[in-house]
Design a protein around this nucleic acid. Structure first.
Lengths: 117, 117
DNA sequence: CAGAATCCCTACGGATACTG
DNA sequence: CAGTATCCGTAGGGATTCTG
C-alpha cells in the first residue's frame, strides 16, 4: 500500500467529531430514534451540535433521516443499510481502545510505583 | 456495550492528527526511519508538526524513539512492539475507507447522471 | 541534524436566543 | 418538536526563525 492510496483518513473523517461515535453507538444499540430521544440519551450535547453531526453522517450515507410531515414535527434517525458496514470498524476500534486504556493504566501505575521509591 | 464504556474515542484519539496515519504507514512499511527520512517521505509536513505528532505517538507507546548521542544528532523512530497491535485497526479502517470512497464516487456519478437529464 | 520558539489564522465546538 | 442563527473562545495546524 502506498501513501497516496492510504484511505485510513477517509474512515477517520467519518468518525471524527466529538459526538459521532456516541451517536452511532446509540443508533446501533437502540435502533431508530427521534431527534429528541437522541438528545435525551446525550444530555450534554447541544441541539446545534446534534443537528450538525447528524447532518454530516447523513451526508456520508451512514444514517437515514425520515421526516414525518406533521405538527409538531417528527424526525427519525437510523443506521442505513450501508452504514451497517461500519459495525466491524467500530467494533475493532472499541476493542483496541479498551486494551489501550488498560495498557496506559498499567504504565501509569508502574511509573507511580517507581516514583514512590 | 453501554455508552460509558465505549472506547472508540480512545482509538480515535491516537489516530487523529492530520499526519498520524501517514506517519504510521511509513513506519509500518519502511520500518525504522530517521527524523530527516520521515521529513523527506512527507515533504508537505512542517518540522514542527512532524515533531509534535511523533511525540504524541511516543507518549501513547505506539512508537519508539531512539536517540544516538552524536554530532550531528541522529534520532530513529519505529513502531513499538505494542504499537504493532494497531495494524489490524489500520487495516480495517483502510479497507472500509477504500470501499467508502467508491461508494461516494458512485453516488456522485448517479447524481450527475440525473442532473444531466 | 533534529529540534524549540514564536506568531498567526481558521475551524471546531459551546452558549444562547429565535422559529415554523 | 426539530431545528436555525449568531456570537465567541479555544485548540489544531501552518509559516518562519533560531539553536546545540
Amino acid at each position: 500500500m502506498n501513501p497516496e492510496r492510504c484511505k485510513v483518513d477517509e474512515a477517520l473523517g467519518i468518525l471524527v467529531g466529538k459526538w459521532k461515535p456516541i451517536i452511532l453507538l446509540h443508533l446501533f444499540n437502540e435502533g431508530t430514534q427521534r431527534f429528541s430521544e437522541l438528545k435525551r440519551l446525550m444530555p450534554d450535547i447541544t441541539q446545534k451540535m446534534l443537528t450538525k453531526q447528524l447532518r454530516e453522517l447523513e451526508e456520508e450515507d451512514i444514517i437515514d433521516r425520515v421526516i414525518y410531515p406533521q405538527i409538531p414535527p417528527k424526525v427519525e434517525y437510523s443506521i442505513s443499510e450501508y452504514g451497517k458496514s461500519l459495525q466491524p470498524v467500530l467494533d475493532i476500534m472499541h476493542e483496541w481502545g479498551t486494551a489501550h486504556t488498560n495498557h496506559m493504566q498499567k504504565k501509569r501505575n508502574s511509573q507511580n510505583a517507581s516514583n514512590a521509591l
